[in-house]
């Protein structure tokens, strides 16, 4: 590139509304951050807490890639304002393995090849953790319906179903 941009003169600044101090437990660790109200939990995780395991597929509640567990329930972090979760207990994909041992669903996803590109995977796994905790979906049809908020464009659905069923039956492979 030969030239440089002409420096743009900045008009007088308006001010942004100030950051608010919030604290929540993420994967069992107390985290304090100062964030503006417009920061979603998803962006807080990815851009402020260096937890990029939670993915942004649409930013509008339409794909499930950003699924995390808040107080044990699966929710979409892209439509959640971080400031509204002060004091919450948040679990992301990074928090599922315990003491270096993968969560059974993580192991099962590997064994059943429940992913290809891997981008929907953290959301799928967190959603499946929520599903199992809810204890409602039992049949294949019910699991499919209950996982329908998690889109996989690579089309791994049959393998994801197999992984979840394996874990529900107490095996991982």
């Amino acid at each position: 590139m030969q030239g440089r941009p002409q420096a743009t003169s900045h008009p007088p600044e308006r001010s942004l509304l100030p950051k608010l101090e919030i604290a929540f437990r993420v994967n069992g660790v107390e985290r304090r951050v100062a964030l503006r109200p417009w920061t979603t939990l998803l962006d807080a995780l990815r851009e402020h807490l260096d937890l990029t395991g939670t993915k942004k597929g649409c930013d509008h509640g339409q794909c499930g890639a950003c699924t995390v567990l808040i107080n044990g329930r699966r929710v979409l972090s892209c439509l959640t304002l971080a400031v509204m979760k002060d004091g919450a207990e948040i679990t992301t994909i990074e928090g599922l393995a315990q003491n270096g041992e993968l969560h059974p669903l993580q192991t099962a996803f590997i064994a059943h090849d429940g992913f290809q590109c891997g981008y929907c995977t953290p959301g799928q796994i967190c959603s499946a953790v929520g599903l199992i905790a809810e204890g409602r979906a039992k049949t294949s049809d019910e699991i499919r319906e209950s996982m329908s908020g998690n889109i996989c464009r690579c089309g791994c659905y049959p393998n994801i179903l197999a992984a979840i069923e394996a874990v529900m039956q107490g095996s991982e492979t």
């Binding site: 994909i93 990074e94 393995a97 993968l102 891997g118 953290p122």
Partner: peptide, 9 residues
């Protein structure tokens, strides 16, 4: 690459 993908790494 499975372990990296299922853990968010």
């Amino acid at each position: 690459d499975g372990p990296a993908k299922v853990t968010g790494r």
